[in-house]
């Protein structure tokens, strides 16, 4: 594995809100994390927990209106990206920090050839000549495993399969050899058989290029093998963070526990899968308490009074935002009795 170096990206208390019809939606509300050179940060959580908004905020791609980054800092090499000019921000996007998206079917422009969409990145950032840009693009397509790249480069996205399109997206993101690759659920929309290939590809390119990766997923299993650090998000906040080991072997937030129970595991004998009951909260109607408490098996009275402070668990790298430790606390709501 490549050397993990110093912190290159530091997100501090990021807050991104949307103005909706029912009021302010606090999609991201106080998220902080560090990303080190060459490191892999996994972000997990149910859909709607604010993972994409966190990442779009880093690149300042939040549509405004209705969204706005209302607080926090995003320090990239100590420079706050939230205070640079639009022109400077453009020089970062796609060049030093790139992003690939969930749905490769809609994320490529259907009206332009794949080649056009690749070369324009190099032309924009390096003022590359058309011939140069084309050659580099073909190289990159070959590198991400697209056969006959000299021919495929002149085709349109609809002539590629879903997995191949995601490879094109990856090629596009890596053309400028970025320091950070943000992969927002890169495997959610592709066939199960392709998912492992895509993840392998991201892993090996990371090793070769030394790119740091933020890997977003709602599937804990995906990040288990890759991430140095994992953030678990719920309702716009980080509820637990730690190494893969911490998260998998000593989950310390009831939500993390619930996530783990709901995915199949090979390392325990328990074969029963238990979904988390209830539905995600309405982000426009959060109160002062813990937003997970209506679904929580360990909820107590104080959970509705204030948001639980962050508590260090065992190793210094392992934190959870919960009053109780699900490993030791008794459940307050026996599962069998849950009937609304």
């Amino acid at each position: 594995m490549a050397e993990v170096g110093d912190v290159i990206l530091s997100v501090c208390d990021l807050r991104t809100h949307f103005r909706g019809e029912e009021g302010i939606v606090k999609a991201v509300d106080g998220v902080s994390f560090d990303l080190r050179r060459g490191g892999v940060l996994g972000i997990v959580g149910e859909s709607g927990s604010g993972k994409s908004v966190t990442n779009l905020s880093i690149l300042r791609l939040i549509p405004d209106p209705p969204g706005r980054i209302v607080g926090g800092e995003i320090l990239f090499h100590r420079q706050n990206l939230l205070s640079v000019t639009d022109a400077e921000m453009r020089k970062v996007r796609g060049n030093r920090i790139s992003m690939i998206f969930q749905d490769p079917m809609t994320s490529l422009n259907p009206y332009l050839t794949v080649g056009r969409q690749l070369t324009e990145v190099l032309e924009e950032h390096f003022a590359a000549s058309p011939a140069d840009a084309r050659r580099q693009s073909i190289d990159m397509l070959a590198r991400v495993g697209i056969p006959e790249p000299e021919n495929r480069i002149d085709q349109y996205p609809h002539q590629f399969s879903g997995g191949m399109r995601q490879r094109v997206m990856i090629a596009m993101a890596l053309l400028c050899k970025p320091e950070i690759l943000i992969a927002d659920e890169p495997t959610t929309a592709v066939d199960v058989t392709i998912q492992a290939q895509i993840l392998d590809l991201i892993g090996s390119l990371r090793r070769d290029l030394g790119t740091a990766v933020i890997l977003v997923t709602h599937d804990l299993g995906v990040v288990a093998g890759m991430a140095d650090e994992i953030l678990v998000m719920y309702a716009g906040r980080v509820v637990e963070r730690g190494t893969a080991d911490d998260i998998f072997h000593r989950p310390s937030h009831p939500y993390t526990l619930g996530l783990l129970r709901s995915i199949p595991r090979l390392d325990t004998s328990e074969s029963r899968l238990v979904p988390i009951r209830g539905t995600p909260p309405d982000l426009a109607r959060l109160d002062a308490g813990c937003p997970f408490r209506p679904r929580c098996d360990f909820a107590e009275a104080r959970c509705s009074e204030s948001y639980p402070p962050t508590r260090t668990v065992g190793a210094a790298t392992h934190e959870a935002a919960c009053f109780v430790d699900p490993a030791t606390a008794p459940t307050t709501t026996p599962r069998a009795e849950v009937e609304p």
Binding site: L56, L59, L61, P63, R90, K91, V92, R93, G94, N95, S98, M99, F101, D103, T106, S107, L108, N109, P110, Y111, L112, E120, V121, E124, H125, M169, M172
Partner: peptide, 23 residues
């Protein structure tokens, strides 16, 4: 302009003029 591929074009760092005219 609400399409995903426009977001991709912006994420690539293209100038707004290119995003509009080309994409």
């Amino acid at each position: 302009l609400t399409e995903d591929f426009i977001r991709t074009a912006r994420a690539k760092g293209l100038r707004e003029r290119l995003v509009i005219l080309r994409h």
